[in-house]
Amino acid sequence: MPEITSLARMENLQRLTQFVAKQAQFAHLPARRVRKIELAVEEVLVNIFSYAYPDAEGPVSIACQTANDRLIIEIRDIGVPFNILEVPNPDVGAQLSERQIGGLGAFFVRKIADEVHYRREEDQNVLVLIFDHHSQDTSTFQIGA
């Protein structure tokens, strides 16, 4: 299973998202879908970079596999417990002056991926994003693994 590990730092963002984009291309996903997969992964990674390791540096790893016409992306860190599924949805109907940006990244992840599963495995956060090859984007998601 192709896998990449690096320090959870902003400077590594593009290397990590490019790895995922390449795997999605190998899986013959259309270009537009590949961009959205990159987006979902970026949002997860930025959360990890910002919150997982408040006092030190730590790693993040991404593994990709294709099974039954689905791209399965597993993202792991050993930082503080964090479940992206529990981030409240932003108010996407708010006016400009009231509009807050918080929660938009997590909202994108749930909106774009066909399934999102989170589990805490010993000292690790394990987030699994699943993208069906042929699906349209949906807002459905499940909690738990």
Binding site: L39, E43, L96, I101
Partner: peptide, 20 residues
Amino acid sequence: LEYISSAGLRSILTIAKNLK
């Protein structure tokens, strides 16, 4: 522009609020 994430939207929101 080929790609934008929530970070890009955040910047555009900051600019829009500043101009308003």
